[in-house]
């Protein structure tokens, strides 16, 4: 093959990688988008909930092998999906007993709308989860074993990693289902209303406390599914949450706060920028490229790609 052909393949390959990585980023961001974008709760422990999702998937598939009967191809996918409800429950409980104290209607009038308290509280939770993870799971990096992660489908000369491709489609499907749930069902609408404007929602008869718990659980659960999907491509240890939490916040802001679909596009954009920047920039500046693109988009479109028009008064 000529150099020129290889050049085209390089570009397509990087694009494909960006798209496939971006898909799971997108789903991750959707989860945070519910909590940070819509509920406006600053959750620094979000990456650690994702870490819990990864371990949940690992123990279901590889560790305890509950799902081993499904075979090495199906089990990791089912494991990832089941990580969602498990982390949902953890999120629900933590919200009920801790986070609810610093969020929602009761802190609207507090200093900075309770964000200060949220920041430290969730940082505290992040510390407990990551270090508790070290005690419970150990420091050894592990991953969900599947042959999918080392095989690919070829489209011409462009190779699509099977695990990533499957993850991509599952991520898109989960995001679409969630979107339909939030926009088409009455429970979903009530959740959004309560998250968006707790006081108004209370007036129209929504049980705001319950809705907030559900929304928070949903947010961390969705991100946990994304974590479960990544767990079959990447190895992880209890401190991994930290590596992802920044990407997630960047994605949510990029997409536009308050927009669920925007969060998905934001995550996808970050995946694409991360992988495609390597075509022109030194590989080392991969993450710098993310932040530069992030800043540029924010400066030229302060409400994000899909955010609502922001009014000053």
């Amino acid at each position: 093959m000529t150099d020129w052909q290889w050049f085209i393949i390089d570009i397509l390959q990087a694009f494909a990688a960006g798209l496939l990585v971006g898909g799971t980023y997108g789903l991750m961001c959707v989860g945070l988008g519910i909590i940070f974008g819509v509920m406006r709760v600053v959750n620094f422990a979000h990456g650690d909930f994702m870490m819990l999702g990864m371990y949940a998937a690992y123990y279901l598939v590889t560790g305890f092998g509950v799902l081993a009967f499904l075979g090495p191809y199906v089990a990791p996918i089912v494991g990832a999906l089941l990580a969602g409800p498990i982390v949902f429950a953890i999120g629900w409980v933590l919200h009920r007993f801790l986070i609810a104290n610093v969020t929602g209607a009761r802190v609207v009038s507090a200093e900075a709308e309770g964000h200060y308290a949220q920041i430290i509280l969730t940082l505290g939770i992040a510390l407990v989860l990551a270090n508790g993870g070290l005690i419970l799971f150990g420091s050894l990096p592990i991953s969900v074993q599947t042959p999918l992660s080392r095989e690919s489908w070829a489209i011409g000369e462009v190779l699509l990693n099977k695990a990533r491709t499957v993850s991509f489609f599952i991520a898109v499907a989960v995001a679409i289902l969630l979107y339909m749930f939030l926009t088409r069902t009455s429970l979903g609408k009530a959740l959004r209303a309560a998250a968006d404007n707790p006081i108004a929602a209370a007036y129209v008869g929504v049980d705001v406390d319950r809705a907030h718990r559900l929304a928070f659980g949903l947010g961390v659960g969705i991100t946990a599914i994304a974590g479960g999907l990544i767990a079959s491509s990447q190895s992880f240890q209890p401190y991994i949450g930290f590596d992802f939490v920044i990407v997630m916040y960047a994605g949510v802001v990029l997409g536009g706060m308050g927009s669920i679909l925007g969060a998905f596009w934001g995550g996808l954009t970050i995946g694409l920028v991360q992988q495609m920047s390597t075509l022109v920039l030194p590989y080392q500046l991969q993450n710098t490229a993310i932040f530069v693109v992030f800043l540029l988009i924010i400066f030229f479109r302060p409400q994000g790609m899909f955010g609502r028009v922001w009014e000053r008064t």
């Binding site: 200060y116 430290i120 505290g124 270090n131 993870g133």
Partner: peptide, 24 residues
Amino acid sequence: IIPGIQGVVYGSAIIAIVLLAPDG
């Protein structure tokens, strides 16, 4: 002694204080 326990205790202390004194 138990690697990680220090982070758990520290994190819990922060959580406790926030709940008792949200503004510091």
